[in-house]
Amino acid sequence: MRSPEAIVCAGLGRRFGERDALAGLDLAVQVGETVLVTGPNGAGKTTLLRILATVLRPSFGRVAVAGHELPARAADVRREVGYAGHDPLAYPDLTASENLELYAALYAVPEARVAEELDRVGLDGRRGDRAAELSRGMLQRLALARVGLHRPSIVLLDEPTAGLDADGRDVLRRFLAEPGRTVVVATHEPEWFGSLGGRVVAMTSGRLAA
């Protein structure tokens, strides 16, 4: 039976050399819930999202995403998850459209969806521009378009408001408001997400703050 929890972390840890970036984190996220992860720089927010996105392996503890244990079932998790990292993860020498076409092929979605997603994030007029020519805010929109390509049930966003102007924030707000999606956002601006009704959890030194 599938877990009603979209994400479960129990005693989750990640070690880099001698330092524990995550030090026994316990967190459960319900299906359809929005969770805002806050905390100072170095608290472990990005490490947590990278583990949930299967980009990084945990060093210890248990983590399950969409009912699949990691790292054993990482391939199943990747189909369910859309991940936008702190960096836009776009190739600077490829156009906005070419960047999305690459990911459309990797996620095995129809190429027609590239135009749909560019239109949704307001980049339809810039589809032929190289990513290197796009502003930070436009790259964030491109990242949102990439995340939405395969219609993931779980979305992981790392500082998604960084560099976004008012229009870009509207795009992000509409994206997050789409129903039925579990969202985990690492942010320094939890108040901006307040209207979306997310649960705020604070991290410090690789754990949830008491």
Binding site: R50, A53, T54, V55, A75, R78, R79, V81, Y83, G85, H86, D87, L89, A90, Y91, P92, Y103, L106, Y107, A108, R146
Partner: peptide, 14 residues
């Protein structure tokens, strides 16, 4: 170095 690698690693391909 350009961190585009993370995007590839998160994709559901072998």
């Amino acid at each position: 170095e350009g961190r585009t690698w993370d995007g590839l690693l998160a994709a559901p391909v072998d």
